[in-house]
Simulated scan of single mutants.
Amino acid sequence: MAPPGRLYERADRPPAPAALGPLWHLDGERTCFIGPLTYNAPHQHGAPVFLAGIYGAFGLRIAGGAWRSCRTAVIPAGVVHELDVGGNPIAVLYIEPTLEGASTLAALTVSTEETDGALVGTGGEIAVMRELWETAGSVDFAGAALDDLLGFATRHARRHMDPRIALALAALETADGPAGVTAACAQAGLSPSRFQHLFTQEVGVPFRRYRAWMRMRAAIAAVADGASFTHAAHEAGFFDQAHFGHDFRRTFGAPPSWSLDGVRLSKNAARRRIVTN
Rank of each mutant, 00 (worst) to 15 (best):
P89M: 06
A232F: 10
F195L: 02
H160R: 15
P3V: 06
L260H: 10
G5F: 14
F252V: 01
S69M: 07
R273Y: 11
F58Y: 14
N268C: 05
G53L: 08
P42L: 07
P256F: 02
D240V: 13
I90Q: 08
A179H: 12
Q196R: 15
R10S: 10
T72Q: 09
I126C: 03
P97C: 01
A63V: 02
P255H: 05
F207T: 03
A183C: 00
S191H: 13
S191L: 12
C70A: 15
N277M: 04
A145C: 11
R158D: 05
T251L: 08
A242P: 00
E96S: 15
T72K: 12
S103Y: 05
A168V: 13
G5M: 13
D147E: 13
T109C: 15
A127P: 00
A127H: 11
T200H: 13
L26F: 12
H160V: 14
P255I: 05
R250H: 07
R130P: 01
G59P: 10
I90T: 02
A153S: 02
A127M: 10
H243G: 11
G180K: 11
I90L: 15
T31Y: 06
P206D: 13
G5D: 13
R249P: 00
R159A: 09
A221V: 05
A2S: 14
A232H: 07
A157E: 04
A254P: 03
A157I: 02
S259L: 08
I34D: 01
A219P: 07
L149Y: 02
L20W: 13
T154V: 13
G189R: 12
V181H: 07
G53N: 08
A168T: 14
E202T: 06
A170T: 10
E29M: 08
A77H: 10
V74H: 06
S138E: 06
I165C: 01
R271S: 03
L190D: 05
V120M: 14
R272E: 04
P163N: 06
I95L: 13
P17M: 02
A102R: 15
G151N: 07
N268Y: 06
T276Y: 03
A224L: 06
P89D: 03
R30Y: 00
L108K: 10
V79C: 01
L7T: 07
R194V: 13
R13Q: 15
S259P: 00
N40K: 10
G117V: 02
F50C: 01
L26K: 03
F238G: 07
D247K: 11
A219S: 08
E9A: 11
